[in-house]
Design a protein around this nucleic acid. Structure first.
Lengths: 179, 179
DNA sequence: GCAAATTAATGATTTATTCAAG
DNA sequence: CTTGAATAAATCATTAATTTGC
């Protein structure tokens, strides 16, 4: 009986940080974010349920927000007169790779790429962006997951081979009964 | 006999990406980085020994680089005429929290903070920055590690308690022999 | 045929381990 | 030996396949 995380706060989001021009852009995905383990750009996360104490910087509500939240409901948080308001918003959408994007990613993987560094991720993201919206973190996650799942596959295959050998060759080869 | 990762490529670093002005600046660290699982700003990978201190903001440099590499040797990569050159550079330095920084972090931890989101990390980093150089990722890692290690401690303590009970109470309380 | 109900994949997070600096 | 940094493994959650009842 583990407790797991009974609902992690969920922090994922993009730090607005010093955005040069927060004005124009039409919402589309922010630049991108480097990641954790490798290097990622961030993406905006999720707005704190309430907003910690005072917010020092950035007034405005810009970027921050967009709940990605675990359980689906989405909130858009805006800072109004020092208060953070959250408005439920349309669904969160996770990246859904196009056939072309997958093709490229798999090609890179087959080519030996496993854990691309940030520069590589950036370039890949840029390239894949021609075939659909995508962010650096998506690329990062794709490699992480693909690598891990290929490993599992290999492992399963190995075990299967072994068990096959066990059940097919064992009986075949003298079973060496106790006697 | 596991193989561990026999030397991961190690990608950590900052992506220079489309730097508006790739000209001037030598080095400096980019703003920061969100992280992996939560949201992080990216950090600079590794700062060259030098220059970490003040950084204006990013102009330049291709930040890219810097091997963080597992085995220590450090490289500074520069793109010259379309070729990426890597120059070995001084040692990597990891964050060394000051007493004050730790105090604050532990206070936050005791206060219940476990996995701060990017906004929180940003604020904490800003605050701790008053007591010494620090980056968002350091804060992120601190919480990750502290949480994990407190858990280990708890677990060990629990086991110890159990074993103590076992060896002290078992013999004491009627051992309920089969009879 | 088709939409609700299931199940299979897989994107995104979190936790556990490992590596290594000091 | 402590602990910052990084990676791998385990989980969670959402979307696409598919199955099923009509």
């Amino acid at each position: 009986m583990r407790v797991h995380h009974l609902h992690a706060p969920s922090y994922l989001e993009k730090a607005a940080s010093a955005s040069p021009s927060p004005a124009t852009a039409p919402s589309t995905s922010p630049p991108s974010a480097l990641f954790p383990f490798g290097a990622f750009q961030c993406l905006r996360p999720l707005a704190p349920k309430i907003s910690l104490p005072d917010q020092p910087k950035k007034l405005v509500a810009p970027p921050d927000v967009l709940g990605r939240v675990r359980n689906a409901t989405k909130l858009l948080s805006c800072t109004v007169r020092n208060h953070t308001v959250q408005v439920p918003v349309g669904g969160t959408t996770r990246w859904n790779p196009s056939a072309e994007q997958i093709k490229v990613l798999e090609a890179l993987y087959r080519g030996g790429m496993r854990t691309p560094n940030s520069a590589q991720i950036e370039r890949i993201t840029e390239e894949l962006g021609r075939h659909g919206r995508i962010e650096g973190k998506n690329v990062f996650y794709w490699f992480q997951n693909h690598k891990a799942r290929e490993r599992q596959k290999q492992k399963r295959a190995a075990l299967l081979t072994l068990s096959t050998l066990d059940s097919s060759s064992l009986p075949a080869t003298a079973t060496k009964v106790p006697n």
